[in-house]
Amino acid sequence: MEAPIGVIDSGVGGLTVVKELLNRLPNEPIVYIGDDARCPYGPRSTQEVRKFTMEMATALSETGIKMLVIACNTATAVALDEVREHFSFPVIGVIVPGARGAVKASKTGDIAVLGTVGTIKSHAYDDAIHALLPSATVHPLACPDFVPIVESGLYKSENASGIVKKGLAGLVVKDFDVAILGCTHYPLLQNHIQAHLPSDVQIISSAVETVSDVECILVSRNIERDDSRRVAPIFYTTGQTEQFLSIVEDWLAIDKPDVRHIIL
């Protein structure tokens, strides 16, 4: 099936999912919307996040997508069910796959969850983890300063390392063997996060497990693309195209990516 896979996010964070899609399913076309102009979603109200998520999903539905990935954890937490009810194509969130990856990786059942204020307040990860492992102990931590670092393009800077260290201070007295990056922006800070967590803590990004779900749905519904020729992804941003383009080039190693502005 030639139709693209749609991916939406509050900003550039969902590019971590796109990176895994390009690695695992290189012949599948991708169309992406990052709502950088209204990022971050974490501090916003549930009503706002639902509205913005539906606007992005609707915009991509009009391009004829065959599947939608809500790559934003906050949007997944509050809007996944509503989006699924509204559209006929399959819609995948990132929270259940992330929880599944963490439960598989944890030997002790003690799992830290790093996320936005909105994601942590929703208890969506707690619920998903306990549905898979009722005996698990979850240590949630809101990290509101992380997304702005990534959106600004400063995720490799020394300043970013200091902000991450400060943001993780609440976990110092906790005992856990796995930490979920409960926001798709956070993998761009993974080196900093790993440096400020105990060396034996395994970090889980939901992107790998999410793309496994995408692959299963493509096969089960027989909607894979048969053509083996690669199609360049298309990226839309509600914000500044120059900043978005530079992050796409850096994170995805795509030369001259197709980045366009969109008004929702």
Rank of each mutant, 00 (worst) to 15 (best):
M1W: 04
E2V: 03
E2W: 05
A3P: 01
A3R: 03
G6P: 00
S10Y: 03
S10D: 01
V12H: 02
T16I: 09
L21E: 00
R24K: 13
P29V: 00
A37K: 15
A37L: 13
A37M: 10
C39T: 12
S45P: 05
T46I: 15
T46K: 14
E48W: 11
R50T: 11
E55T: 10
L68I: 01
V69A: 01
C72N: 10
N73L: 13
T76H: 08
T76D: 14
A77R: 14
L80E: 13
H86G: 06
P90I: 01
V94G: 04
V94F: 06
I95L: 09
V96R: 14
A99G: 08
A99F: 04
R100L: 10
A105M: 14
A105D: 05
S106M: 01
K107Y: 02
T108H: 07
G109M: 12
I111H: 00
A112F: 02
V113G: 05
G115L: 08
V117I: 15
I120W: 12
D126K: 02
A128C: 09
H130S: 03
A136Q: 02
T137R: 03
P140G: 05
P140T: 04
Y155N: 12
Y155G: 12
Y155E: 07
K156I: 04
S161Y: 00
K165Q: 13
L168Q: 10
G170L: 13
L171H: 02
V173S: 15
V173E: 15
V173T: 15
A179Y: 09
G182P: 10
Y186N: 09
L188N: 11
L188T: 14
L188G: 14
L189W: 03
L189K: 07
N191Q: 09
H192K: 05
I193Y: 08
I193A: 05
H196V: 06
L197Y: 03
P198L: 15
S199T: 14
D200P: 07
V201E: 14
V201H: 13
I203G: 01
I204D: 01
S206H: 08
D213K: 08
E215G: 00
C216S: 05
V219I: 05
V219Q: 04
N222V: 04
I223N: 04
I223L: 09
D227C: 08
R229G: 08
R229F: 04
I234E: 02
T237W: 02
E242N: 11
F244G: 15
D250W: 04
L252K: 06
R260W: 09
